[in-house]
Amino acid sequence: MHIPDGIVPPAIAIGGYAITGGMIWYSLRKINQFYNPSEEIPRASLLTAAFFVASLIHIPLPPASIHLVLNGLVGVVLGYFAFPAILIGLFFQAVMFQHGGLSTLGVNAAMMGIPAVLSYHLFQFHQWFPTPQRRPLIIFAFLAGAMALALSALIFTALVITTIPAEMNPQLERQGIYLGLVGYSIQAVIEGVFTMLLVSFLQRVKPELLDIKK
């Protein structure tokens, strides 16, 4: 899922930084409207840690293996804190483990961060239903987790498929990308289930983390 250095042309990398800059400005503006924004930082830090290590955990999915992204979960729990959290997590992933790259940090942040913020809004639809009902909460948690990953995968696919270098065999590369898309669709279900389980757990033990009235 992470786009490494040298895969996309410089124009796309610069565009990614521009979008990320805009999203950071918008997210900080929203965060600033909180009564006490620093109160949310411990939660954001812990979720950033989870996002940071998630890429190191490989789940075997024959014939390949996948690693969790968890951008949907970060979005559901953190809301507008999700975008800065993902940017920081991606920065450390790129610097420490070469997952992604510094030139593509903006592209990767936009690719994973915007779906995370959208998943937060999708998850909020559960409030349309009466609060005692647990089923809408779980269903929207699954949808938010799965949608964030699926949307990120679609953005990734669109970016890499439209920027295949001329010296490469485009047919062979496209074949690999489409095959990867099948893997991402399965991963979307896994991330949806993971988000659903965690939201269900948080709702029972600490519902204030989800801004839910018990």
Binding site: S38, E39, I41, P42, R43, S45, L46, T48, A49, F52, V53, L56, F92, M96, F97
Partner: peptide, 21 residues
């Protein structure tokens, strides 16, 4: 090496959380 680096990174995030908490 990866486990050690990941542990250090996670500790940095936990430290940030504890500082603000």
């Amino acid at each position: 090496q990866k486990i050690l680096m990941a542990a250090l990174g996670v500790w940095g995030f936990i430290g940030t959380a504890l500082f603000f908490a």
